[in-house]
Write a protein that binds this DNA or RNA. Structure first.
Lengths: 139, 139
DNA sequence: TTCGATGCAAAGGATTTGCAGATGC
DNA sequence: GCATCTGCAAATCCTTTGCATCGAA
């Protein structure tokens, strides 16, 4: 549904719809949490799509450039990617690196306006991550 | 003042106080925004302290391990470091990478408690960064 | 003297680039 | 057919490690 629309918008814009492209978009859209390039590659492999690392990076770059995907950082050196517009505030377990979503958009909207006014900044995005131990890893 | 105390605590704990150690601590304590390993190295060089990259990383690791410094990420592949306890919410200009502080601790305290209750997460830290264009780069 | 701190070179891991070949439309 | 996508190898960038030496206490 949602996936149809991203892909069809891309198609209308004259971009090629390759297997990799639609698979990556679908992956990101259905994933519960942001995925690293490597995780994406592994997921694709499970679906019998064996894709080179480089290709994954390039696809992510493509999606980033069209404001379809965006980067999130969880404190290791990997970047992770998620669809723009999905909630992007997370609670990350520092041990197992599992991430869950939290929705704090309302609170942040207020804060962003405050900052724009106070500092003359034109805010284009933000990242908000909480780190800690999930109920499993606490034991 | 503040610097005295960090250093003297370390001394009391039996850690050696080298030129590099006290210089890095002072740097971080007086810096207006988080610094990358390389920025630290450059600053030290300005102060006639020529230090190897590795040493800077190791010192940062040391400070991190003692909960004196912590990492912050601004969306490029570099880690940046700041003193724990200094405000660590930032407004980052995506163009010039300059960062300013914003204090949102109050708002976040509330949110963290909410999350701890709702998700069974034991929150140990967070990162909150806003990205945008500063008044200079907007032109 | 002793153990932590340091430098240097090399390794490591994630990401990027160059180029040639493959493929969607 | 042609521009874009893809794979492979090599390059890059940041960070880490191994090992020998140095230096603070």
């Amino acid at each position: 549904m949602k996936q149809e629309s991203v892909i069809s918008v891309l198609r209308e814009q004259g971009h090629r719809i390759t297997n990799v492209r639609s698979a990556v978009v679908e992956l990101l859209e259905t994933s519960k949490s942001p995925l690293s390039a490597d995780e994406i590659r592994e997921e694709l492999k499970k679906r019998k799509l064996d894709v080179n690392k480089t290709t994954v990076y390039r696809e992510l770059d493509f999606l980033k450039g069209r404001n379809i995907a965006q980067e999130v950082e969880f404190g290791d050196k990997k970047k992770r990617y998620e669809i723009v517009g999905k909630h992007h505030h997370h609670v990350v377990c520092v041990q197992c690196k599992r991430a869950e979503d939290v929705d704090l958009q309302q609170d942040l909207d207020v804060v962003e306006k405050k900052i724009a006014r106070g500092k003359g900044f034109q805010i284009t995005g933000h990242s908000l991550e909480f780190f800690g131990l999930c109920s499993n890893c606490r034991q």
